[in-house]
Amino acid sequence: MSVYTRPVVIVDDNVDHAVIARTVIASMAPQVEVTTLTDPRGLDRRLAEVERDALVLIDRVLDVTESYGLMRQVGEVRSDLRFVMLSSALSAEDAERAARAGAVASAEKPGSLDGWRSLLARLLDEAEAAQRPPTEREGEGRRGGAVA
């Protein structure tokens, strides 16, 4: 098992999905600190206050609004955050928009637990890899190399 050090923030107004993602992470990496934000209100302020270097798993649609703008806005003041956009249904166009808004990756929410485990393990691995070695990340612009 890899040692994951980055905190994870789950932003999803579907409480069930947030709980399931949190449960899967807990089973894979119990040491990881997980914060769930399920109320779409005031997310710009609350995301600006989350732990440094967090991996942020953000739902594409929060309430009735898409979260691209929110991600872009928070990214401007928190370039240390690593955004990954998740959605129950994600088209190629959605993935492109997510990348333009600053997401380092985007994915459709898997329909099985095994799928969730595989996806979250990959995202946690990538987040750790991006963090090593810390000295090389000083002053690095996160949004320069966004890929969907």
Partner: peptide, 26 residues
Amino acid sequence: VPHRTTTAATPDVTTAAAGAEAPADR
């Protein structure tokens, strides 16, 4: 192993998420 979890769903702000975009295809 303790699993530290913080749930922050506080309905303390009444405005919509700033910077959010209305779905263009809706």
